[in-house]
């Protein structure tokens, strides 16, 4: 670990403070050889705070846990859940797990892509919506499943995409107003 950490921070200092106190509250003993084991937990928290894990956040986490930046980057690149690019205000995830896939989730994804004019993994130009795929949310009885934020839509078919998008637009607008 380097002692020089003069990297540029552009994300809000307040969020860094929250992440910092989260790590402090874990009470990790600096001599504990297993402290690396907290990395994934901390990255989850960081992504929930910042929405994504850009280099500056990765370096902050690396320094905080006493691991090197390359290792943090390796872990992030390994897990599909972690993202290094910002997502939209409202993120729409389509399950591509086996059960959802055989029941037609690919067609659902196509429909969303057509509606939003973006590909899976992309963000709309106004930054409101992003689209990605995930692997099984454990609700296979409801396949195909779509998640919008924390909300789960079950038994989705391409015709329902318009209705779901209406909800999404409402959600995005209410987020704007609350701001």
């Amino acid at each position: 670990m380097s002692e020089v950490t003069e990297y540029k921070k552009i994300l809000p200092e307040e969020l860094y403070r929250k992440l910092d106190s989260f790590v402090e509250d874990l009470g990790i003993d600096s001599k504990d050889p297993r402290k690396k084991g907290y990395l994934i937990q901390v990255l989850h928290k960081a992504q929930s705070l910042f929405g994504y894990l850009p280099e500056e956040v990765q370096k902050f986490v690396a320094r905080k846990l006493g691991v090197c930046h390359s290792e943090v980057s390796g872990v992030i690149s390994f897990y599909n859940f972690f993202t290094t690019l910002p997502k939209g205000k409202v993120n729409i995830s389509i399950c591509m797990g086996t059960a959802c896939f055989v029941r037609g989730s690919e067609k659902v994804l196509k429909e969303f892509e057509n509606f939003l004019h973006i590909k899976s993994g992309g963000v709309t130009s106004d930054g409101k919506f992003s689209l990605d795929v995930l692997r099984c949310v454990g609700a296979c009885g409801l396949a195909p499943v779509v998640m919008v934020g924390d909300r789960v839509y079950g038994n989705v078919n391409p015709k329902m995409v318009g209705d779901i998008m209406t909800d999404c637009i409402k959600l995005a607008n209410s987020m704007e107003e609350n701001k």
Binding site: E55, C68, S73, S77, F78
Partner: peptide, 24 residues
């Protein structure tokens, strides 16, 4: 990483996409 402790390399991504490379 181990011998020189310079630590610029990591296993990046997974499966067929995996490479040994610096972060990002």
């Amino acid at each position: 990483n181990e011998i020189q402790t310079v630590k610029v390399l990591t296993g990046y991504k997974r499966g067929f996409m995996a490479v040994v490379a610096p972060p990002e």
